[in-house]
Design a protein around this nucleic acid. Structure first.
Lengths: 137, 137
DNA sequence: ATAAAACACTTGCAAATAACAAGTTTAAAT
DNA sequence: ATTTAAACTTGTTATTTGCAAGTGTTTTAT
């Protein structure tokens, strides 16, 4: 559970954000959903970040409770669930992109494709539109 | 320590960000420095978020090691230290502003001044300049 | 010059959280 | 009807956090 004690805290927008998605694993799940095309439980597990199954289940439940993702049966294969960003989740994109921009600037080892970072800096609105269109609905 | 195991991880910009400032307390310290004019240890303690002294000391050391803040003696009062954002720290502002924008949109209880949020949405560059000018150098 | 106060930590310990491994449940395919 | 796959859940151990109290350095007061 992310920031259980202050779940209902309100007033400061930074603290509100932290209470909604403010831990490492939540950020990585949102990244997977937003930029990597991952949408199944096993894809998050296999992403290679080393998240434990109980923590993944807990974070997915938190994000769902906070209205950032939805969970439903996969119509193609009913034994598994399909996780998707809601509008509220997609609206985190400017923040995620700002973070990517910053990291690309300060981490020499970052691996953002040149085309991505160029477009992020020259035409962020179009980049965002393209990413949104790529999210299956 | 924030994300000790993956301190030197590189490749993914989101994960890099998480390794540099990716926990609740680091975000709140950056918020204090960036928007609230706080720059002393005791001001972070007194901010009312309930951070423990050991955790604050640990996070300040992490942020300093990561080049996001600097620590020096206060020229006015040598018994205390002055914490400041570096350029690298100030460059987190777009991300922080994007987060504030999102929270204001989704948290009815948020308390961002109307003038701030209007300017954020209409003229973010100017808002940013004003905030930077307010940071004492 | 010495003692007291302010400030920024540091340490020790109990409580909470996360990681790891193994087991359970539900639906699908055979 | 049985087996397999997928998504958890549970139990245990390790790590991190929160809390209370103590320490070291610099400033202020006497």
């Amino acid at each position: 559970m992310v920031d259980k004690k202050t779940k209902d805290w309100s007033g400061c927008p930074v603290r509100f954000g932290m209470s909604q998605f403010g831990d490492k694993w939540s950020f990585l799940i949102i990244r997977d959903l937003m930029f990597k095309g991952r949408q199944y439980y096993h894809e998050f597990i296999d992403a290679g970040e080393g998240i434990s199954t109980n923590i993944l289940a807990s974070r997915l439940a938190d994000l769902e409770n906070n209205g950032i993702i939805t969970k439903r049966r996969d119509p193609q294969k009913g034994s598994r669930y399909l996780y998707r960003l809601t509008k509220k989740g997609v609206d985190l994109m400017p923040m995620m992109l700002a973070m990517i921009d910053w990291s690309e600037k300060y981490d020499s080892g970052t691996e953002v494709p040149k085309r991505f970072i160029d477009q992020l800096r020259n035409n962020p609105d179009q980049l965002q539109q393209e990413i949104i269109e790529n999210l299956s609905n």
